[in-house]
Simulated assay, not measured.
Amino acid sequence: MEKVERPIILVTNDDGIFAPGITFLAKVASKFGRIVVVAPDKPQSGMGHAITINSTLRIQKTNHHNAEIEYACSGTPVDCVKMAVNHILKKRPDIVLSGINHGSNSSINVIYSGTMSAAIEGALEGTPSIGFSLCDYAMEADFSQAEKFVSKIIEESLKNKMPKGVCLNVNIPKLKEADFKGIKVVRQARANWVERFEERKDPYGREYYWLTGEFVNFEPESLDTDEWALKNGYISVVPTQADLTAHKYLTDLKHFEKI
């Protein structure tokens, strides 16, 4: 009988290789394939799709997740995916999993998220990819409550082909397992951060600034958004892509071609 090779599952994140979220994700994913972990050697939250071009990149073998291959990388989450796909692995992974992030990456947060940028990079590389986030910023967050759903989403994504260039943005509300209402496939809510910079002084009397602000959902009553799903006890799944073209306005802007 011909031996069937188990899928290669690349696991990364933006909270760093020591974060509890990636430990949990790698453990769950190990039920479905051969685990390769390439993750930042320190927290890289809010890095978006940044890549390292003006300094060196370093990788170091580690052994925190009982993975077949495991490296800590000095770069960003996107660097980690690029390094894994183009240098460390001899063949492309069957799926890229990013997370589980400590904190939400719903709505506009997807733009700033290192977690989701790693998943988007995986999709750009032609690999099915998923970014997972739990709406709990605490380092002692209990990821196990959502294990059943995380497992099913990974399993279904390995079984069923994802569209080219599309990844999944999965956000999990902070709930006990019994309180989850299920999964909703939804769109990204129209929301934004109303930001301000707090001015402070360091011990030497010099000014510095700390970014703070408030998250505002502009369509709280819309039933088809990730924000609504999370608020109402559902795990939100948003198909996400890198194409930022406002396609419906292409025709409206044709007048520029007459200038």
Rank of each mutant, 00 (worst) to 15 (best):
V4F: 07
E5W: 03
P7G: 05
P7M: 06
V11G: 00
T12W: 01
T12M: 05
N13I: 00
I17E: 00
P20D: 10
L25K: 03
K27G: 07
A29E: 01
G33K: 05
R34F: 04
I35H: 00
V36G: 02
P40C: 00
G48Y: 05
A50M: 13
I51R: 15
I53G: 06
N54P: 01
S55C: 12
T56V: 11
R58W: 12
R58F: 11
I59R: 14
K61Q: 15
T62V: 13
N63L: 01
E68C: 06
E68V: 10
I69Q: 12
A72H: 05
S74T: 15
T76M: 08
K82R: 10
K82I: 15
V85A: 01
V85K: 07
V85Y: 09
H87K: 09
P93R: 07
G99S: 07
I100E: 02
N101V: 12
S106P: 07
S106E: 13
S106D: 12
S106L: 14
V110D: 04
Y112S: 15
S113Q: 05
M116N: 15
S117G: 10
A119P: 03
E121K: 12
S129L: 07
I130M: 03
S133W: 09
S133H: 06
F143G: 00
F149E: 10
F149W: 13
I153R: 02
E155A: 09
E155Y: 09
E156M: 14
L158E: 05
K159S: 11
K161M: 09
K161G: 03
M162G: 05
V170I: 11
N171R: 08
K176E: 15
A178F: 12
D179F: 06
D179H: 10
K181V: 01
G182Q: 09
I183E: 07
V185N: 11
V186T: 08
A189Y: 04
A189E: 12
R190M: 12
W193N: 14
W193L: 15
R196Y: 10
R196W: 08
F197M: 15
E198Q: 12
E198M: 10
E199H: 03
R200P: 00
D202A: 07
Y204I: 10
Y208C: 05
Y208M: 04
L211E: 14
N217F: 01
F218L: 13
F218E: 08
L223C: 06
D224K: 06
E227M: 13
G233K: 01
I235F: 05
V237P: 07
T240S: 12
T240C: 06
Q241T: 13
A242V: 14
D243R: 08
T245D: 04
T245A: 09
T245Y: 03
H247A: 14
H247K: 15
T251S: 15
T251I: 11
I259E: 08
